[in-house]
Design a protein around this nucleic acid. Structure first.
Length: 290
DNA sequence: CACACGTGGTA
DNA sequence: TTACCAAGTGT
């Protein structure tokens, strides 16, 4: 990936890590390219309205990440001299940067020796050492200790270790249908030795259909395409009544209407987006934050 | 600590 | 078609 290139600036690494939070690589790639072309440095993004970040986030999902990345760019300018910090604690203080992202940026952008633990690494460790199909629902202190103990002493080697174990989990030791025959450590895998027992629990899938989240997503799809504030009434009406059902903003508007959500649910979604700062009121309508 | 938070691909 | 899941974070 371009963000693993030695030529990639720390800012590019930070942008990639935020985009990759819960979003597959293939969908991140084109958006990341566009962001780095448009905003080569944190200051370039920081002088834009936050709504521009949200709009150019496109359909990556979890648009609050775009808002936080913009806020991080502002913080980098104000508190870090315009340079992405190399220190774990300083990275962790940035909006949208949690323990995983702070460690990943320190390691992959600056070559620091950090204990990087993501879902891939957790799954590899769970299978290899605990003999379970999946890691526990929540990251535990024991897992962090295990990962810290495994980390090579040499900084350069530790970076490769982190990247390698992550890749092993992403490409071979996958959640579903792992490619054990291609695994370099299959002979010492506790899960395989135990006969590959199924997960002891069934992950509860995230609800989507009929949820506030789905409505929020539909509203955001409208606002990303809107070039003027959208009055609340317009979210309620059938697009056919609006005269532009077949093109442009009419498409997401029609999709929103098809959800057939209760008025109070739409109201809740709009209030939530406002509360999160993903939208703002302007001239009697909703728009992305200017 | 459980829960909310987007989106689209795959089995 | 349904359900899982993808390099998590903030509350």
């Amino acid at each position: 990936m371009p963000w693993r290139s030695a030529a990639c600036p720390p800012w590019g690494v930070l942008v990639s890590e935020i985009m990759l939070q819960q979003t597959p690589v293939v969908r991140v790639l084109p958006v990341w390219e566009e962001w780095l072309r448009r905003w080569p440095e944190p200051a370039d993004l920081a002088r834009e309205p936050a709504g521009e970040a949200v709009r150019s986030w496109g359909r990556l999902g979890y648009p609050r990440r775009a808002l936080r990345l913009h806020a991080a760019a502002v913080a980098i300018g104000q508190d870090h001299g315009g340079q992405v910090p190399a220190d774990y604690a300083q990275l962790l203080s940035l909006p949208g940067v949690g323990s995983y992202t702070a460690a990943a940026v320190a390691a992959f952008a600056y070559g620091r020796r950090e204990t990087v633990v993501d879902t891939n690494i957790r799954r590899v460790h769970a299978r290899l050492f605990s003999g379970t199909a999946l890691p526990s629902p929540a990251l535990t202190a024991a897992e962090m200790r295990l990962a810290a103990g495994l980390l090579p002493d040499d900084a350069g080697t530790s970076v490769r270790w982190n990247a390698s174990v992550m890749e092993l989990g992403a490409l071979v030791c996958t959640a579903r249908a792992p490619k054990c025959s291609a695994c370099p450590v299959r002979e010492r895998c506790a899960w395989r030795a135990a006969g590959e027992p199924p997960p002891s629990y069934t992950p509860k899938g995230q609800a989507w259909h009929g949820t506030d989240r789905q409505v929020r997503g539909a509203v955001m799809a409208v606002l990303r395409l809107a070039d003027a504030p959208i009055p609340a009434e317009m979210f309620q009406q059938a697009p056919a009544d609006l005269g532009f059902e077949a093109s442009g903003i009419g498409v997401p508007l029609a999709a929103l209407h098809r959800l057939n959500s209760a008025p109070e649910q739409l109201e809740r979604a709009l209030a939530g987006l406002l509360e999160d700062g993903l939208t703002e009121l302007h001239q009697g309508g909703y728009r992305l934050p200017g």
